[in-house]
Nucleic acid binder design. Structure first.
Length: 413
RNA sequence: GCGAACGUAGCUCAGUUGGUUAGAGCAUCGGGUUGUGGUUCCGAGGGUCGUGGGUUCAAUUCCCAUCGUUCGCC
């Protein structure tokens, strides 16, 4: 069988785990390191595919859980796959939905945030917003739809079938994410279950790819997902175990803060094989995530923060984050960032975007999203260039000191 | 001119049979958001309860006067 994905490394940065490269998929190439644009429900919120491409987005990540609930995998399959359905013809990742099964129900319940460090207790017994429990067994996960509360059951095999129906280029294994505050005993149990599920995902995935090949269709790629929380031995064990399976690349799950990157991500990427791409799941809300992630061997990121924060008025600038709704911007006729080359900065003022937000005009969300997504995508692009021209560490220092001020020292050491 | 109702936060209004620091929604101001939560979450500021008297231990509340708004009648 031919390969679903090819990864080649172009340049390595000595004194670090950083590298540049190219991921080749049936829907095009991704120059890495790259920021994968968040398109959870088969749309990058408020943006057309043309706007995503114009701001520099190479690839999009959609979410299998959300698409399973609406519109349903069968509709996307009938549409000819997610690329045709959403009219984006570049590489598309899917997240398995494992994260949502554990987090979304809880995240909707007031006072509990599954992704927060403040959460306590056993995540396998998470209280759903309807008062029901999400129950994890070795076979799969019983959970409830956050849309209507209906009972659902997901297995690794079902997740593979779902992602193949969606037809994305790169899939993630169905995994069990553990809270940062879970005890070692539970972390180990969840990790071992994730490993077991990884094997089951891979088996079903290969069967489905054989069907694709027999029909002359594009092959799809699968990434194994590393777990193990903040435990060095578990993370290394998880990375080593998954390295022994025939994955096209790896996802790194359960990392919550940039401070965990030089430890957790390093342990993992020192263990994983060099010749396969590594995707850091869900990280990229701030520049430190990106610089540290690349430095410690990450090739691709995805994160919803750029667009989510944009929708709430929090905009990146090279001098730090601003809240465009603040009253002092109502008469500021300069661009969001004078050094930014995005469509919003080239054509509109802070005063105008402030007005749009105050007036709850939809264009404000679009301009803010274009700016933030451009800022983060472009930041990773500059990181990639800095590796190729040997200026990564200088670039990192200049960028982070300007963005964070004195707090940049936390990331420079 | 006569009668009635109403004047409480920037706006629209609760409330008090007289009793701690008078509330809400919206608006204003600030913050949060990392495998997605646009229309959200958290917090803050803001009122001598129209004005002036009286009764009372105590008045935004009861009484009187006055000013204003609205409605009805002549």
């Amino acid at each position: 069988m031919k390969k679903a994905l090819e990864f080649s490394i172009k340049k390595r940065l000595s004194g670090s785990l950083a590298r540049t490269g190219v991921i080749k998929t049936p829907h095009g190439d991704i120059q890495t390191p790259a920021f994968i644009v968040g398109g959870t429900k088969a749309t990058v919120k408020t943006l057309t595919p043309e706007q995503v491409i114009e701001l520099g987005g190479q690839s999009i990540l959609v979410n299998a859980y959300h698409l399973m609930l609406r519109p349903g995998a069968e509709i996307i399959k009938a549409a000819g796959g997610v690329h045709k359905f959403m009219n984006f013809h570049g590489p598309i990742f899917t997240d398995s939905g494992g994260f949502q099964v554990f987090s979304l129900g809880m995240a909707y319940k007031k006072g509990i945030d599954a992704t927060s460090h403040s959460q306590k207790g056993d995540p396998s017994q998470a209280v759903h917003s309807t008062g029901q429990l999400t129950k994890v067994t070795d076979e799969g996960v019983h959970f409830r739809s956050h849309l209507d509360g209906s009972k659902l059951f997901m297995t690794p095999e079902m997740s593979m079938e779902l992602q193949h129906d969606i037809g994305s280029d790169i899939h993630m294994c169905f995994d069990e994410l553990t809270s940062p505050l879970a005890g070692r005993e539970y972390i180990e149990k969840a990790m071992n279950r994730t490993h077991s599920w990884a094997g089951r995902c891979l088996n079903r995935h290969k069967e489905l790819n054989e069907e694709h090949e027999s029909r002359g269709e594009n092959l799809q790629a699968l990434f194994g997902v590393v777990q193990g929380a903040r435990e060095e031995d578990y993370r290394k064990k998880s990375a080593a175990f998954l390295s022994g399976l025939d994955f096209d690349g790896f996802g790194i799950g359960g990392v919550f803060e940039p401070g965990e990157v030089p430890s957790t991500v390093r342990w993992i990427n020192e263990t994983l094989p060099e010749d396969k791409p590594r995707h850091l799941l869900g990280m990229g809300a701030q520049p430190a995530d990106l610089f540290l992630g690349v430095e410690y061997g990450i090739d691709t990121f995805d994160c919803v923060a750029p667009t989510r924060q944009a929708r709430n008025g929090a905009l990146y600038t090279y001098d730090g984050r601003i809240n465009i709704k603040n009253s002092n911007f109502s008469t500021d006729f300069g661009p969001i960032d004078r050094d930014c080359g995005c469509y919003a900065c080239k054509n509109f003022t802070r005063a105008y975007v402030n007005h749009l937000f105050k007036s709850e005009e939809i264009l404000g969300l679009t301009l803010a999203s274009i700016h933030n997504e451009y800022f983060i995508v472009h930041t990773v692009d500059t990181i990639r260039n800095s590796i190729e021209n040997g200026r990564f560490f200088e670039h990192k220092k200049e960028f982070l000191e300007r963005y964070y001020g004195e707090a940049a020292q936390l990331f420079l050491y």
